[in-house]
Design a protein around this nucleic acid. Structure first.
Lengths: 365, 365
DNA sequence: TTGAAAGCGCTAACAG
DNA sequence: CTGTTAGCGCTTTCAA
């Protein structure tokens, strides 16, 4: 509509200043909403800006202020609703405080995470929320802290770092759910996870993921309480794609002393496990019991509905963003530190095993 | 480790230049990998940079070059795996080409989308991928095009705009799946969607979403083919939260001439619908048939597995990013334009209705 | 190849 | 309140 027909060059404060017949500084003040500006000048500047459809260059703004109003989020896999929900919690909170979110996916690849941190730092984000792929290799996270840039961890702890972390206590909930399984007569409990490791699992091995390590700890504690030996041979890591997950499921179910219950480490992996169980013609929970982490809505729709460990993922995302923004604003961490507890939701997929003390070597009916 | 103990100020090219004993310009050239630099200078600069652990300020870089290596993505709801997957396709492609992604959630709110576009433009992203909340109100998208910034639409068309759009032909697939339902003896087919409208649905009404409009068109065509009257009373929009979805489901199932089949507009809404059906004590497909859009993995795990319309969401995300990057690079759109077709995956949730010509007024068994 | 100097668009410091 | 003058950290002329 306006008479301006020229192409290319963007409108700057200088243009607006000229049109409003004030100095660049005054125009900038009116536009940027800072400093002292008379009503007269302000209205003339705003009118000129409107007329020219001026838009501030946030990059230039950020350069001077040192604030980009952007927070970086690094997760393992957006496709996983677990992170999808957490991300929603983060973006909701961020938006409310005027922050934008730059999202980077790492595929749980440490190298990708290290690069992501670097990129985000280079882009001068105001803070970082990371769901660390490794709880052991934390140099890059340490560097974030050293640089003075705010950092909050999500979902997983990082060994030896003093950093706000929004995560549930996995040891507790894992102990509780293992107890549940044990009480139901299961001793051969398989744990399947996509966690990548150099070598197959053996008892006492150091794991990259605090999540998984804690869950295994919890399981072992539950076994110890009953003075039972923890079946380390049923801990299966490196369950990569759908096919490998199915293969592993078949393995633990068809071995000489097979698993009578399976715990799925996350909701994505759970899908393939359940499918594999169905393919074997086994019934849940009559033939195999099943328990999974994350309470996705669909777990209520299967027959039987699945017993799950519900985690307050959205709230963790929310809290992570809140904590980060507090840090950015130079505020101390809110006290008491927010606590997140997972809960065991008992639905129909864990069945009672009559012959609890079944001797080794029997097969699934 | 290094001797540098001072705080605060970040290392800049100037610092590196001084340390390497070259001019700022030469240091910048070596660091930025442009212009002409002798091997000697380059190595000295790189060494100095390493020593000082210099990191470029991408903000400053972007200011000069006018390129931020960032693309903006605007979607309705990340929490919905539909967009989760699409986003994955986008980020995967973006990363491969050295782009980062700024993600904004709109909650399918037009106002939020308009603001998001503005914010992203102000941040000087190199391009935008938008899943437009409205196919009618497209001023803000038009403005993106006017500004000369590359734009690609995802999932939904925008009325009257000439812009690359990665979406499936909803009319076709909807016609096909409605035929399937009709052939199975269903005439009372309900369509439930979260699409917000001012007034309840009436035939011929203009809808904000091309997706939904196209689906209804397809349904109507299928009815016309058989010279049947399309049951507009069973089109239910504005299905907001879980409770309202359940209420609507009960309504169409308990009304005098009830629906014998339900089509769920997306995977999120489907969960509540199926739950509501189960709560009513009705069986799928014996009492009600069910069909949903999006082929999520869990739809294979329900009893019976659900009949769905599968959409190549990941690939659409991939293609959207690819197309956008081509535009950014000043290349013409790739020809032929990528086509995406949805497919009807017939599983067990659509059953045959014996008495196809049931007179109105009968109730569900 | 090199270096000095002039910006990018904006905010900040400092006189009036 | 207002305008002038410096920068922010980098890229880009333009001569040398």
């Amino acid at each position: 509509m306006s008479s301006n027909g020229s192409r290319r060059r963007e409108i700057t404060v200088a243009d607006v200043a000229k049109a409003a017949q004030v100095s660049k500084a005054q125009a900038a003040r009116a536009l940027g909403n800072y400093g002292a500006v008379s009503d007269d000048v302000r209205s003339r500047v705003l009118a000129a800006a409107e007329e020219l459809s001026y838009r501030p260059n946030e990059l230039a703004r950020s350069m001077n202020t040192g604030k980009s109003n952007t927070i970086g989020v690094i997760v393992g896999d957006i496709e996983n609703p677990h992170f999808g929900l957490a991300t929603r919690g983060i973006t909701d909170t961020a938006k409310k405080s005027g922050f934008n979110v730059i999202l980077i996916n790492t595929d749980e690849e440490l190298a990708a995470e290290i690069e992501a941190v670097q990129v985000l730092l280079d882009k001068r984000v105001d803070g970082l929320i990371v769901a660390p792929a490794s709880s052991v290799e934390t140099h890059h996270l340490q560097r974030v802290q050293d640089s003075g840039r705010p950092l909050v961890l999500l979902d997983r702890h990082a060994g030896g770092m003093e950093v706000e972390t929004m995560a549930v206590d996995m040891v507790d909930i894992s102990r509780e759910s293992t107890r549940h399984l044990l009480q139901s007569g299961h001793q051969r409990i398989a744990f399947i996870s996509t966690l990548k490791t150099e070598t197959p699992y053996r008892a006492g091995m150091v794991l990259d993921s605090s999540q998984i390590a804690d869950r295994l700890d919890g399981m072992q504690q539950a076994y110890q309480e009953r003075e039972l030996v923890f079946p380390a041979d049923l801990v299966r890591l490196n369950a990569g794609d759908a096919e490998s997950i199915r293969r592993i499921t078949r393995e633990v179910l068809l071995m000489p002393d097979p698993a009578t219950a399976i715990v799925a480490s996350d909701g994505l992996i759970a899908l393939s496990i359940v499918e594999a169980i169905q393919e074997l013609g086994l019934a849940i929970p009559a033939d195999v019991s099943f328990l999974m982490y994350d309470d996705f809505a669909w777990t209520r729709l299967t027959t039987p509905p699945l017993t799950v460990v519900a985690q307050p993922v959205y709230n963790m995302g929310l809290a992570a963003a809140k904590a980060l923004i507090r840090q950015i604003d130079g505020l101390p961490p809110s006290t008491p530190a927010p606590q997140f507890t997972a809960t065991l939701v008992r639905r129909g997929s864990v069945g009672t095993r009559k012959c609890a003390e079944t001797p080794a070597g029997t097969t699934v009916p």
